[in-house]
């Protein structure tokens, strides 16, 4: 059974199409990663799931309940950890959690127990009674996560939970997410860190321009790309003629595919090999033609390669491209209720 289900969801802000027919289905107990550059529609998707935003069209179900028809049932079962952490600077961490517990109608005894558990689990003992205004980014994020988990939700939705965090806080959060998953919580997390999704997620979707463009387990998605990536140079700085010559040599080998000359990297050659044993073959082939190998590096395909293949650009390039187009102030104004 899928605990989160989105079908053909469309959402527009004025003339901007944030979601263009989004489909997503997340099975129970899954830790699901939503990967995409800023502006690809991740936050909009999560805000719709949390009942903060209404889609223009399409069906959205969380834990079997329609977010439009029965938002309160959804809210009871969902923990939402937003991207911009809104804490009350004047309250202490404990007071914020108590408020949160009351908003979710926890009984007093349950509330205190849960606060004690989460305080210990997230290492917050030494500062939970200090005012939120004095917290660092990592402390805020941990408290916010505790707030989202206080009512033991079946479904946990996190919007880029580790952006800008120190390594210690990030590790604490990763470990907690793994633990929650092992206890059966269904988790959806958005990220634009490839590594995070690769390490944490059971399944993942890549979003681009308001749609899912690739879906599956990280391993499968990488496997679809085929074999290892190899970067090869015959000299430290080669030239066009030489590299073209090498390219045609390499292309003649059966197990080698996708040979590309990277002009910005001193005419180095990027290629994909299907078989580990092809390396001696490459060496032989080049030596026979009088080339020596200056450097050769080999890597497994990464999620960035998946992204590159799906969109034709790297995630970094996509981020840079979108960064110039976004008006963050306008977006936060629009998100204001």
């Amino acid at each position: 059974m899928s605990l989160i289900e989105l079908q053909e969801v469309v959402k527009t802000y004025g003339s901007v199409k944030a979601l263009r027919g989004l489909n997503l289905s997340i099975p129970e107990g899954c830790l699901y990663g939503l990967l995409g550059p800023n502006g690809s529609g991740k936050t909009t998707t999560l805000r719709i799931l949390s009942t903060l935003l209404e889609p223009d069209s399409g069906q959205v179900h969380v834990a079997g309940f329609n977010v439009l028809g029965n938002p309160r049932a959804v809210r009871t079962r969902l923990g939402f950890v937003a991207q911009d952490i809104a804490l009350d600077k004047i309250l202490t961490g404990r007071e914020l959690l108590q408020l949160q517990g009351d908003l979710y109608h926890l009984r007093s005894s349950v509330k205190d127990l849960r606060i004690a558990e989460l305080t210990a689990r997230l290492d917050m003992d030494s500062w939970i009674d200090r005012r939120c205004g004095s917290y660092s980014g990592g402390m805020k994020r941990r408290l916010d996560l505790a707030a989202g988990l206080l009512h033991q939700p079946k479904v946990l939705v996190l919007d880029e939970p580790t952006v800008g965090l120190d390594i210690e806080s990030r590790t604490t959060i990763w470990n907690l997410l793994r633990e929650l998953k092992s206890l059966g919580t269904t988790i959806l997390l958005s990220s634009h860190y490839l590594e995070e999704v690769d390490v944490l997620a059971d399944r993942m979707a890549i979003m681009d321009n308001g749609r899912v463009i690739a879906e599956g387990t990280p391993a499968d998605l990488k496997k679809e790309l085929g074999g290892d990536r190899i970067t090869l140079r015959v000299q430290e700085f080669s030239d066009e003629n030489e590299s073209e010559e090498v390219r045609s040599l390499l292309s003649s080998i059966n197990e080698v595919s996708h040979v590309v000359i990277n002009r910005s990297q001193g005419f180095s050659l990027n290629l994909v090999v299907d078989d580990q044993n092809v390396l001696p073959l490459i060496r032989q082939c080049l030596e026979r033609a009088g080339f020596s190998i200056f450097s050769l590096s080999q890597s497994r395909p990464s999620l960035d390669d998946v992204y590159l293949r799906s969109t034709g650009k790297t995630l970094m390039d996509a981020e840079l491209e979108l960064a110039g187009k976004r008006d963050v102030k306008l977006e936060s104004k629009k998100a204001m209720r």
């Binding site: 949390s50 009942t51 903060l52 309160r72 809210r75 809104a86 804490l87 949160q100 109608h105 998100a335």
Partner: peptide, 11 residues
């Protein structure tokens, strides 16, 4: 954005 915290709660 604190209002959002209240709005995602099942009041």
């Amino acid at each position: 954005g604190f209002l959002n915290r209240l709005l995602v709660a099942p009041l």
